[in-house]
Design a protein around this nucleic acid. Sequence first.
DNA 1: TTATAAAATTGACCGGCATCAGTTTTTATT
DNA 2: AATAAAAACTGATGCCGGTCAATTTTATAA
Lengths: 231, 231
Amino acid sequence: MKQTTHYTACTISREKCRCFEMLSKEEVELLKENSVNIEFKKKEMICKQGGLVSHIMYVEKGLAKVFIEDGNNTLVLKVVSTGNFVALTSVSEEFNTYKYSAMAYVDTLIKQIDVNIFRNLIKQNAHFAKEVIDILSVNNSQIYGRFFCFTHKQSYGRVADILLCMAERVFNSNEFELPLSRKDLAELTGMSSETIVRILKKFDEDKLIKLTGKTIKLINIEQLLHISDKG
Amino acid sequence: MKQTTHYTACTISREKCRCFEMLSKEEVELLKENSVNIEFKKKEMICKQGGLVSHIMYVEKGLAKVFIEDGNNTLVLKVVSTGNFVALTSVSEEFNTYKYSAMAYVDTLIKQIDVNIFRNLIKQNAHFAKEVIDILSVNNSQIYGRFFCFTHKQSYGRVADILLCMAERVFNSNEFELPLSRKDLAELTGMSSETIVRILKKFDEDKLIKLTGKTIKLINIEQLLHISDKG
DNA sequence: TTATAAAATTGACCGGCATCAGTTTTTATT
DNA sequence: AATAAAAACTGATGCCGGTCAATTTTATAA
């Protein structure tokens, strides 16, 4: 049986991380004492590329994007929702500055964990470290897929990907009020906002989706999957 | 002082990994007993996407590409040279199959390390685990940069990137005999081989490089850096 | 409510690069 | 050395999707 891989431009984790389950009672306590929960308002920066790494960030509730930029352009690496890390790559002591920025799409509750405490936990608890490695690996793999789609799928496929992914992994429903602007969607799919508008309109005309203000309803999932697939 | 990040499409590690230094004598011995060195000929597959993960691979000497594919298209994720891992992401027990393939650009000596031994080392030696995390993180960061370039730099910039990177990190010289075909270069820079030919020709005409058979000599580094920079 | 800014939409234009098709050169094989 | 096969090169063509410019709609503030 020959298998082919189907990549998606979407990079929202399917499940919540479970690395904290590996900690002992004392370690959990230690973590609790060295972390705080903060509410970030919509569009607020959660961390900034180039800034000194002070915390590891975990989304208690909300939705955020992780992105890199060079002054002119932006690339969204992934979307992070409830139960996942924003900035886990920064555990590595190779980096004393964040290699990316993060911004809240909606009001988002972030747990900030002191990075040195987190690093020590890794050094003293190998099972915890192993979970961290697993998370990094899965994350890695997802970005590879996204990368692949950006280079080989064309715009319609990538938009289909994002719609399907949002429905399945963020809203758990085929009808949802999208908190992202067209511009957000554009950079998320790696295209201009004009193109996003045209594609969504085309999907609407073709009765694949139904647009009503900020609400999007996926109608013909079958066809969307097909578009996602053939690029 | 405002800083901007300059990304490169190149993903060759700058230095050799040093995780093995974290092992005890006994662990080194254990590793030695459970690994073998194999010579892969040019163009031979080192590991295959979808195949069961049996080993972690380390390049003792040579040059290889790591790539993903979906049956129609290919994306080179990174180039691996002497002293680096080919397939470290696969340490994660999240994956029982390789998520990418690897192929030797030239005759390459690979150390195959039993994956379970490697995993156990991670679980029992947190300092080793920490080094593994560092490697994964740096690797991650490099791919982000490559991803960025593929979406925002245009072809001339990406070709300049690869030439500069090869000179600096693989051959340590501004003149080198490139073991890659035009097709290899094309997929490495994410474009068609025709485009690569045209761009190299243009660089040659403009006296930025000098092509002589398979030998490439970088002449105007300044200008190449500029092209790399402005995309 | 009105004024102002931001976001969304639409149309026109066009450029970068893929694709195709054909030729020449290099490499491999007998 | 002769032949076949692969790689490299060249030119013509076309289209996806970015950019620009202008209008309409929605959101925000006074």
